[in-house]
Amino acid sequence: MSEKNNQAYWHANLRLMLLLLVIWFSVSFLAGIIFVDFLNQFHLYGYKLGFWFSQQGAIYFFVLLIFFYAWRMNALDKKFGVEEE
């Protein structure tokens, strides 16, 4: 495959990665630590919201992020013709 194609593939990969890392940062460092007290005034069932993010929610998001990345990358591999046999 051409160098140009590989470059385009790499940039699509970087864009996706960046988006997912922003979410990763938001659900853990922002919601679970920096804004935890602010979010704690809201409730999710018996959980204070900030407490939920830091002890439950962030972990669920992490799982979703990885599966979403794997799924999108498989599609990108195909689109740019760089998938493994």
Partner: peptide, 19 residues
């Protein structure tokens, strides 16, 4: 609540690892 550093720290690393 402080225990959250282990919960997030020891799972969030997998996002870095996978991506």
């Amino acid at each position: 609540a402080d225990g959250a550093r282990y919960l997030m720290g020891w799972t969030g690393g997998y996002v870095l690892l996978a991506l």
